[in-house]
Nucleic acid binder design. Structure first.
Lengths: 189, 189
DNA sequence: TCCACCATGTTAGTGACTAACATGGTGGGG
DNA sequence: CCCCACCATGTTAGTCACTAACATGGTGGA
């Protein structure tokens, strides 16, 4: 059922996560991760383009683009992205909570990993912005809306990973809530 | 007047900017930059901790922290950061417009450079957030406010560097404008 | 003029990442 | 059940960013 490649991939991620958590990202070589997973360092790089990628693997981008398209075009770009992220969060297939926490904690505690995480974010940002641009939103406005929302989301994520208490979902909705337009007296549009 | 270290530093930055622009960041080695500046590669690393740093050198962070503290505490955290960035932009000593453009263009067009730029942004974000926390704003809320504003600002910067027309200042104020609370009929608080 | 110090060079090493080629296990067709 | 083709993997050798330890030389002040 699980093909050989899937098993190898999982073995690499598992070994990497464990070793990085135990000894720190910088004090584990790719060679060691590969050996722990029972392969050579070349195989590692066939699965993950960089040492960081084995920690930062997340393929959610397409879902998010669709979520933006699903929002009513009458809202401001910022509000569309904001609601899209809130909505998508509920539907994403989450891996185990503990594993997610371990990964985010690694990222929060290491400059190089954080840098790469931001780089990934940039791709997500482009996906979100493109979805808006297709609907006629000016590119700069689209990028800004996506950038602001992702900036807020990332802040919540890193804060959680750095040791904050409570559930991740709560933090995300509270973070995005800060970007919400203030309620207009009575009667929501 | 200009000490030897200042001259060497400027020579390295100049050589790097020119070579990177001509041949692309990845196709120039640190060794070549150093040689072009008349020093060895070890001297390069004594001035800049990474190859990317020679492009991403900007020491504005402390100014921004003070700008946040200067905003009235009655405003929302988001609004305080937003106004602080707008205000600080006017007072910053800008290097030559052309050089800035060349640098931002390099960053906009290269994944590794963008990643490091985001990492720098993280430092700036911490400075902004800390200024809020000192005033009693909860840490998560502070990080989110700073993250959202910097996300918007970065989007405007990269869009400009990628070839957008017009002045950088206009883009920045328009980007941050998107995060402004909608005007409350008449009478601004 | 001489001395002390600091910027710089030299050398040697580690580790991430790549390219070219060799090999072996696995699955599907005969 | 066997064979063959293919794909995942290993081997080897190389480049380049970055670091550490030690040697040296020019510059500025006494």
């Amino acid at each position: 059922m699980t093909s050989r490649t899937e098993r190898t991939r999982a073995a690499l991620q598992g070994a990497a996560l464990q070793l990085f958590t135990e000894r720190g990202f910088d004090h584990v070589t790719v060679e060691e991760v590969a050996t722990a997973a029972g392969v050579s360092h070349m195989t590692f790089f066939r699965y993950f383009p960089t040492k960081e990628a084995v920690v930062l693997d997340d393929p959610y981008d397409p879902v998010l683009g669709d979520a933006v398209r699903a929002q009513p075009a009458a809202l401001s770009p910022l509000e569309r992205v904001r609601r899209a992220l809130l909505m998508a969060w509920g539907t994403l297939p989450e891996p185990g909570e503990d594993e997610t926490r371990a990964r985010v904690a690694l990222v929060a505690g290491h400059d190089g990993l954080r840098a790469k995480a931001w780089a990934n974010n940039q791709r997500t940002q482009d996906v979100l912005a493109d979805a808006l641009v297709e609907d006629g939103v000016p590119p700069l406005e689209a990028q800004v809306a996506a950038g602001a929302c992702l900036g807020a989301l990332m802040a919540a994520l890193l804060d959680w990973g750095a040791g904050g208490e409570g559930g991740l979902g709560d933090r995300i909705s509270s973070a995005l809530g800060q970007l919400a337009p203030p309620p207009i007296a009575e009667g929501v549009p």
